[in-house]
């Protein structure tokens, strides 16, 4: 990234911007972690070479196309396939066998970004012979990220890393059999995406829309403050069947939330909880 700009942003500035966005576009960032939100705004000002904070506010209020770009920048869509292989190994060995006992498997990937996570899960379900009886809902608030996810086309340069992750997560097939290489891109097998439903869903403003046996929400809660984390965890609790699993990012925890007493961490330190009440 270029050098951070010298424009000083106050807490009041951030509050004004958040109010503008809420009033004009309906997105509510008021309970996002202020520290991360500030970084995103500072980054925007730098990459767009804005001359002042007022210019940012003006463009956000008046230019819908610019606002779409702002949403894309605020929502950090950094992701990977089979990120944290040890986590996927547990999904493969400990969770999928439980899912197998259901006649119909429903999984929700909340905050799926550009889709790498849900494709990873589709591969694991396929290898367990369960994909045909599964439905994976992959949602995000960012429409541009979802559009990429629907295509299932990822940079070829990442495949070496993903293939390594795949093997570390207990994969035994040839990872390259899941995609076709095309110039700089790897286009994933459409048989993997047949059972994925991509939809726009905002965890702050939208409601529970189904019930699931497994919910992934990895590296999304870190962008929220504690109040919002608690509200979103309640939304997951409402959307999770009894005995269902909740999978968070490696540094996320439900311990400070009101749903904690109803959940049990399944294995050691991995951030997977089972709903026991």
């Amino acid at each position: 990234m270029d050098k951070p700009s010298d424009i000083q942003i106050t807490e009041e500035d951030l509050t004004l911007l958040i109010n503008d966005i809420h009033l004009t576009h309906g997105y509510d960032f008021s309970d996002y972690s202020r520290a991360s939100f500030r970084r995103r705004i500072e980054r925007l000002i730098t990459i767009d070479q804005l001359s002042s904070f007022a210019e940012l506010r003006y463009r956000v209020r008046t230019d819908p196309a610019y606002f779409a770009h702002v949403v894309e920048e605020i929502s950090v869509t950094v992701t990977e396939m089979l990120r944290d292989p040890a986590f996927y190994k547990i999904v493969r060995n400990n969770i999928i066998p439980v899912l197998a006992t259901y006649p119909f498997i429903k999984v929700w990937h909340a905050g799926c970004a550009t889709g790498e996570e849900v494709y990873s899960m589709a591969i694991l379900l396929k290898e367990a012979g369960l994909l045909h009886k599964s439905l994976l809902y992959a949602t995000d608030m960012n429409p541009a990220a979802l559009a990429k996810a629907r295509k299932g086309i990822f940079p070829l340069s990442q495949m070496q890393q993903y293939s390594r992750n795949y093997m570390l997560a207990g994969g035994t097939q040839d990872f390259s059999s899941y995609y076709t290489a095309n110039y700089h891109f790897a286009s994933f097998d459409s048989r993997l995406s047949e059972k994925i439903i991509f939809a726009q869903h905002n965890l702050v403003t939208d409601f529970s829309f189904n019930s699931f046996q497994l919910i992934f929400c990895r590296n999304v809660l870190i962008y929220f403050n504690k109040d919002l984390q608690n509200r979103v965890l309640k939304l997951f609790d409402d959307s999770l069947e009894f005995n269902g699993f909740l999978a968070l990012g490696t540094k996320e925890n439900i311990r400070f939330s009101s749903i904690a007493p109803n959940y049990k961490q399944i294995i050691g330190r991995e951030k997977i909880w089972r709903k026991i009440k």
Binding site: M1, R34, S36
Partner: peptide
């Protein structure tokens, strides 16, 4: 922790961030 940026949410808590490398 590895692979996250560490921020301060306020004077009494940290907040993690998984955005671009700097």
């Amino acid at each position: 922790p590895p692979d996250y940026h560490t921020l301060f949410e306020d004077e009494s808590s940290f907040s993690l961030d998984y955005s671009e490398k700097i």
